[in-house]
């Protein structure tokens, strides 16, 4: 086998893509509706928010460790901003700036405790998440509220509508997908073509080596959590606007599926590994499974079983790959010896 093929076979992204294709074919055969244009648009629309959250997960896991606070930061901030918009007549861009500031502040809190006191990021972000939850429900009585006027236009931003020739069912593509694409392009440029982006990977690979090389490890980590706070808020606003209302309860627990998706896409819990493509593919696969099982008529409860199975398979692939690369290194050692 040549080296390039070997490397390709060593990647989670490859397997996830393969599973997506196989699954798509199966569902197409059973339901005959998968490749229908309206279904594809629905699917794309369904991944927008989770794919945005996946960026938070990617940045945190690659550089430091778990971040589970993004859904509640998103939920609380969106709720606060919608409330503010109800009672004031501020224009949308001011509201968005405020939202980003709140997200960044939450990120600062995460970053401060993780960097300054070396607390485990899971514990810190769990606490932040609990605080946000408390504020949203305790202090602000988090009930469902409609999209305020300032965001109505965005909420109704429809890029195009498609209609399936066979079933006659229609689907609309929301403009938020452009925001998602923009964020991914930005993330790609930063992660691949800036020193900060490469530092994120270097730190995740070996923190001590990174310090010794003169990388400002603490600054980078702090920055990652601040940025995560802001990305989370963007995801949260998009979600509420797409649903046309905001209920903080819907955000609660959103991190599970996101983390599952990115792990499936090859993000390693131990740090240093993970790609944007993997995040997108993982998110897509999970959305596709829940979306398509509905098409076949499988109940929601059984869908969870399927998702669980897929995660187990994904995690085993990662583990097998890691083992294989270790073995390869030993064999190489022998050759060199």
């Amino acid at each position: 086998m040549n080296k390039k093929t070997k490397r390709l076979l060593g990647r989670n992204e490859f397997y996830v893509a393969a599973i997506i294709i196989v699954l798509a074919l199966i569902i197409q055969v059973i339901s005959g509706q998968f490749i229908a244009i309206n279904n594809l648009v629905d699917l794309a629309r369904a991944i927008i928010v989770n794919a945005i959250y996946a960026l938070c997960g990617l940045l945190a896991f690659v550089s430091t460790g778990a971040d589970v606070s993004f859904p509640m930061i998103a939920g609380m901030t969106t709720y606060i901003i919608f409330k503010v918009a109800e009672v004031t007549a501020l224009p949308a861009f001011v509201l968005v700036a405020m939202a980003l500031a709140i997200g960044a502040l939450c990120g600062c809190i995460n970053g401060f405790f993780i960097v300054k006191y070396h607390f485990n990021s899971l514990i810190v972000t769990l606490s932040t998440s609990a605080i946000c939850y408390g504020i949203a429900f305790g202090a602000l009585k988090g009930v469902r509220i409609d999209v305020p006027d300032a965001f109505k236009a965005f909420s109704k931003w429809n890029l195009f509508t498609v209609r399936s020739g066979i079933t006659g069912l229609g689907a609309k593509m929301h403009g938020a997908i452009l925001i998602m694409i923009l964020l991914y392009v930005l993330a790609y440029l930063v992660l691949r073509h800036t020193m900060v982006g490469r530092s994120i990977y270097a730190i995740g690979g070996d923190e001590i080596s990174a310090r010794r090389a003169g990388i400002q490890v603490d600054k980078v980590r702090f920055g990652v959590f601040v940025v995560n706070g802001m990305i989370a808020v963007i995801g949260g606003l998009c979600y509420a606007c797409m649903c046309k209302n905001c209920s903080p309860m819907e955000y609660y627990g959103g991190e599970n599926i996101v983390i599952a998706a990115i792990v499936l896409g090859g993000v390693r819990l131990t740090g240093g590994h993970g790609t944007l493509l993997g995040c997108l593919l993982g998110t897509f696969l999970l959305s596709m499974v829940s979306n398509s099982l509905t098409l076949i008529g499988v109940s929601v409860y059984w869908q969870n079983v399927f998702i669980g199975l897929i995660i187990v398979i994904g995690a085993s692939i990662s583990a097998i790959q890691a083992k294989r690369s270790l073995k390869a290194s030993k064999e190489l050692g022998k050759e060199a010896a």
Partner: peptide, 22 residues
């Protein structure tokens, strides 16, 4: 003190790039 998760070329070059302050 190498970076296990990065490629050989990145390991070889990253210190130079850092010290160039690029």
């Amino acid at each position: 003190s190498v970076f296990p998760n990065l490629t050989v070329q990145e390991n070889l070059a990253i210190n130079t790039v850092i010290s160039n302050k690029q």
